[in-house]
């Protein structure tokens, strides 16, 4: 590698994924630029989430999944790396907030702890920094020992973002992070993403086209082909995708003609 634009943090090359003999993703090639937000949009069942979960190899938890092609992080094939080390570099925020049934402090310090940090002061500093970066510090700072499950849905999701940040990843994957939240909480998450992209490369899957248009710098449009395998139809700057898409199918989708 190395011949491409240096800003491509994540790349896939002819990447396909199979559930047993069923092909769920077909020959996807994409360059995801760093320090930006890339949105993956497309109709339900087009493989957006599956594609997103390829970047931290979460699909491996499903029995019978095989892949072909390459997924590269900083030019290195992630399938040749230690999966635990990979997931430390590629964090993930899930669709439904999933804080552990522990205190706020223990949730955020979970990652640093399993990666070997024991010192209480260091942990406390990491927890504070992560909660600040996730824009939830002011709301929880008075009681970090409170159960994370006592927070509202929107707070839980920001806590989950803080928990992911605490591991100091390079990339953050977000799988419809606001779909379970109300509009106000959604807005806060979107604002948060804008501030996070200074430091991180963010890939977000969303059902919501307005959200993609609002928050992302680049947009990838996926669709299933006649064999029900997910394809990348078009990828480019968000502004271009939403104003002058190159592909007829993209235009039909974003103008609401199907999907």
């Amino acid at each position: 590698m190395g011949t491409d634009a240096p800003e491509a943090r994540l790349r896939t090359v002819d990447y396909s994924l199979f559930y047993g003999s069923f092909r769920a993703l077909r020959d996807i090639t994409i360059d995801i630029p760093e320090n930006s937000i890339t949105a993956i949009i497309g109709p339900s069942g087009c493989g957006k989430s599956t594609f997103l979960r390829s970047f931290n190899r979460m699909n491996e938890l499903i029995p019978g999944v095989t892949v072909t092609g390459k997924v590269l992080l900083d030019g290195e094939d992630i399938f040749h790396q230690n999966v635990v080390a990979l997931r430390r570099r590629v964090g993930m925020v899930f669709q439904r907030p999933n804080p552990f049934p522990k205190s706020i402090f223990d949730n955020v310090s979970y990652g640093p702890r399993i990666h070997g940090i024991r010192d209480r002061g260091t942990l406390a500093a990491i927890v504070e920094r992560s909660l600040r970066d996730a824009a939830i510090w002011e709301e929880v700072k008075d009681d970090l020992q409170k159960s994370a499950l006592a927070l509202s849905g929107g707070q839980q999701q920001r806590l989950c973002i803080a928990r992911a940040l605490a591991v100091e990843p390079e990339v953050i994957l977000m799988d419809e992070p606001a779909s379970a939240l109300d509009p106000v909480a959604t807005m806060r998450i979107e604002e948060l993403m804008q501030s996070l992209k200074q430091k991180y490369t963010i890939v977000i899957v969303t059902h919501n086209m307005q959200q993609a248009a609002r928050v992302s710098d680049y947009t990838a449009f996926m669709m299933t082909d006649e064999e029900r395998a997910g394809n990348l139809v078009e990828f480019g700057a968000t502004k271009k995708i939403f104003t002058t898409p190159a592909d007829r199918r993209t235009e039909d989708y974003i103008s609401g003609r199907f999907g």
Binding site: L61, M92, N98, F100, P101, A164
Partner: peptide
């Protein structure tokens, strides 16, 4: 979701079991 959350943070399977699943 707890298991996935733990694994996505870079836990090994045993760390996930010991620190998240068993306490839960």
């Amino acid at each position: 979701e707890y298991r996935q959350g733990a694994l996505a943070l870079g836990s090994t399977r045993w760390e996930m079991i010991r620190r998240v699943v068993l306490p839960a």
